[in-house]
Design a protein around this nucleic acid. Structure first.
Lengths: 358, 358
DNA sequence: GTGAAAGCGCTAACAA
DNA sequence: TTGTTAGCGCTTTCAC
């Protein structure tokens, strides 16, 4: 069957040129806002463009200039408020400099991350901001660098990759948080993260391929060691990758005879699920279990009790990487910078001395 | 041998063709995966491509095909978990059909929305999903339709624009929620929304240019009328556009002698801020003030008391629009559809009879 | 200051 | 099955 020939050919520079009785080049100059054109001609072209309702084809423009004005961003999970906020920081900084952002999710999966990067570089983005999901396999990031596309890292550093990076002082933060717990009298403290290993259990730091978590574990272990806690490695719990997963891990932990008396959660999504699981088990915060988490999420101040958190400068984290990247995009060559932003703890009501003597 | 001036000219189809000793067209056919090529040649080209590390230029590809494989999405505020979740629904559906998503924020501002749309259409996206921030000025949406780019509406219908639309039964939802409050004995109920008017006060429904809120107000008013509440219009509060804004409105409301005994919040962000404000004022939920909100956000189940909510099928909302749009993108012409998804109330603990007799 | 023509990297007719 | 030749809509020399 036949479809009506509804030809919706978009109006092009040529069309405008014709309408304005000038050459294609001249029309292009005023439409593209480059080169020199007499005021008189400019007006004529603009008028013609208006009459025809001309809309530039950015695709074609990018093709000839080689620039897209777009920054590609790949984060682990945009639904995590941590990333939403960081992305807003990026977007704001980008917009301020005339760049736009295209966003992709990696789901913290290396293959998805690679695919996203392939998509983005295929679209010829001008630069990339990535939250690398793994430090083990970074060949794709190396490729990007080799291809000449500027790259910057957000929230997670890669010691092997010398590029602009903005992170927070994860080790220090975890250390301080753990110490807070220890000082309250806890010795059976658990650090809970989404990161996982093949054996779903923590043995040593070399299994951990996410730099932020690596740092946090080190801070955690150090604080434990300082407090004379024996074999603190056993207190690291991995694999809180989803809500049910988290729930299961926490519930199971709490059912053990030697259950933890305090938990340090690696992000606010985990913390929320942990909080729910604790309640469900019939235990209370901080009476039975003390809780502290990374990320000062909105809800943390509104629970009973409100949650003590490690406040990260999330928005600025995003803003800072974007600025670093854009500086490079604008041609200011400079050696890669590694910025580490400070965090601080906001004490609220979710930490108390342990009740169950050990 | 010496390294020449690191020319980062990307390798093209021509390069591969040359390397494989075939014509550009042939190379393009195997690289672009179209037309017919003998197995032998195909292998040769693929090998050459691998040797040269060929990466297709999607930009060029889109230029010649006229398709980008991208769906542009414009939502009000990606930081609102409602939209994050809807966007995930869209992304999942898009990915399943081989499309990618590029996301833009409107900040609920008509000019920003227009700019975002300009950007997206400039990039020649294949289709658009929009949460229109206003029903008053939809010229830009009309333009899109006229240009032939498929468009679908998310969460907010536009009576004047006959396009694929997926919303929820906002009027019914607000009606049921309000009735729940009324049944509990409340007559001084307040509906609080981010939408605002020039005079920052509600007079009549024609001032409201956001269809969802319009519907909600109608449902709210209807339930009030049914309960014999006098001049229910005065109970509609507008302008909760930001956290401080919301806080101010709620605090001010609560300080009035005739303060509301129950609040219906239009989204979970507003509800959270409202909850905080109530507490700050020294009042309690539901003892002094009952609270119910749209959107079953994660945190609502974890407060004390947990919040009674209107549960919307947010993920499916996104999934459904995306599927509608993609069907159209694939050429299945069909008359525009308006899908309305049901909601239901999850009763928790934030509603109780009013204590202050009126 | 303006125009003609080449070309970005790819796909799409049409030939061979 | 493969190659030749045009474009897509724009920018960019390079003359005039």
């Amino acid at each position: 069957m036949k479809t009506p020939a509804l030809k919706i050919r978009a109006v092009t520079v040529s069309d405008v040129a014709q309408e304005a009785n000038v050459s294609k080049a001249t029309a292009a100059r005023v439409l593209g806002n480059y080169g020199v054109v007499s005021e008189k001609v400019r007006e004529g072209v603009l008028a013609a463009a208006k009459r025809l309702d001309y809309r530039p084809n950015e695709l074609a423009r990018s093709m000839s200039t080689g620039k897209s004005g777009i920054i590609g961003v790949v984060v682990g999970d945009i639904e995590n408020p941590f990333f939403s906020l960081a992305v807003r920081g990026i977007s704001d900084a980008a917009k301020a400099e005339g760049f736009n952002v295209i966003l992709a999710n990696s789901g913290e999966q290396i293959e998805t991350e690679k695919a996203a990067l392939r998509l983005l570089t295929g679209k010829r983005v001008d630069g990339l901001i990535v939250t690398p999901s793994e430090s083990r396999d970074i060949s794709h990031l190396r490729d990007i660098l080799r291809s000449g596309t500027p790259l910057a890292l957000l929230d997670r550093a890669l010691s092997d990759l010398d590029v602009d990076t903005v992170t927070v002082d994860d080790k220090q933060a975890a250390f301080m948080a753990t110490r807070l717990l220890v000082k309250a009298g806890h010795s059976n403290v658990c650090y809970l993260t989404a990161v996982d290993t093949d054996e779903h259990a923590y043995r040593n730091i070399d299994q951990i391929y996410t730099s932020s978590v690596r740092d946090r574990i080190q801070g955690f272990l150090q604080a434990c060691a300082e407090a004379g806690i024996d074999k603190p490695e056993r207190l690291v719990r991995l694999g809180a990758t989803s809500q049910p997963e988290t729930r299961a891990i926490v519930s199971e932990s709490l059912r053990q005879p030697q259950r933890p008396t305090a938990i340090l959660a690696s992000d606010s999504v985990i913390a929320l699920e942990t909080f729910k699981a604790i309640r469900e088990t019939g235990l209370s915060v901080p009476g039975d279990i003390s809780l502290i988490t990374f990320h000062n999420a909105d809800w943390t101040s509104v629970t009973s009790p409100p949650i003590t958190v490690i406040d990260q400068p999330v928005y600025n984290l995003g803003k800072a990487v974007a600025e670093l990247l854009i500086r490079r995009l604008k041609g200011h060559a400079h050696p890669p910078e590694r910025v580490i932003l400070p965090t601080h703890i906001i004490e609220r009501g979710s930490i108390a001395p342990p009740t169950t003597a050990k």
